[in-house]
Amino acid sequence: MITDLFSTTVLIGILASGIRLATPYLYAAIGETFSQKSGVLNLGVEGQMLIGSFAAFYVAFTTGNLWLGLLVAMIVGALMGLVMAFVTVNLHAQQGISGIGFYLFGLGLSDLLFQRLIGNVETIKGFEKIYIPGLSDIPGIGQILFNQNILVYGAYLLVPLAWFVLNKTTLGLKIRAVGENPDAADSLGVSVARVRYFTIVLGGALSGIAGASLSIALLNVFQQNMTSGLGFIAVALVYFGAWKPVGVLGGALLFSMVNSLQLWIQVLGIPIPSDIAVMMPYVLTILVLVATVSRVRAPSALTKPFERDE
């Protein structure tokens, strides 16, 4: 039965579903990369995702307009980011903890609004898979790469874009400077507060999209606590990727594909207890990091509020 794992159906299945599963992680983790690069740990990603997820679903459900839903999810996520920015930048709140607060807030509020505004689990027609003539028909590869919906493609386009912004633009330079040495950045006239506001709000907006990618593109339902820890994994993936968009991509794909692999292991009837199979992605993520001992440092100012010396 183990050999069944190496059949093309299974391999294509794992790759295709890995790519799909990685989508919400990518949006959320790239957003988190930006905020961490500027020195802010946002543990509230999960809450922002849930709010975004609900907002997108609700708007799409009532208006039938998916793009409007996506937009609203972004705005709502960004708004939560704005509050978070105020709390961390202006009020210097402990970042890890305020993040947990925002997580709880988002978890509760999304559920509360869901109960009040929709009530029952409903479905909508989400973003459809995009058929690309020619490409989608390529056996194997077409199914893996070119048979996904627009938000999946968006997630992968985000990776080079994020890399470009972080490494090739003045904005990126400022973000990195603020995260590494805020005092120096400040003395050079970079507004630490403004940069951090920007990254946290951006992170919020991307988390909103991450949530929307679940509720109006991949799953097309909304349910209480539907992200189920996904946002926390996304934060972990930022560390996995060593604050590089490409690294984050690698982590997201690895985690998702191993997750899909464990589903196949169960489906193929390979005799491993289901709980042990479910453990696999978590164990492997750690093991890979151990094996590839990286010496990358976190941004020096991560979690440290900035204050001008008077």
Binding site: S17, R20, L214, V221, M226, S228, L230, G269, V278
Partner: peptide, 20 residues
């Protein structure tokens, strides 16, 4: 084929299990 996903709330994983 039976797939236990190890959670009562992980909608995304349940959906991938169905796809599988």
């Amino acid at each position: 084929n039976v797939n236990y996903i190890g959670s009562f709330s992980d909608v995304a994983l349940a959906s991938e299990a169905a796809t599988t």
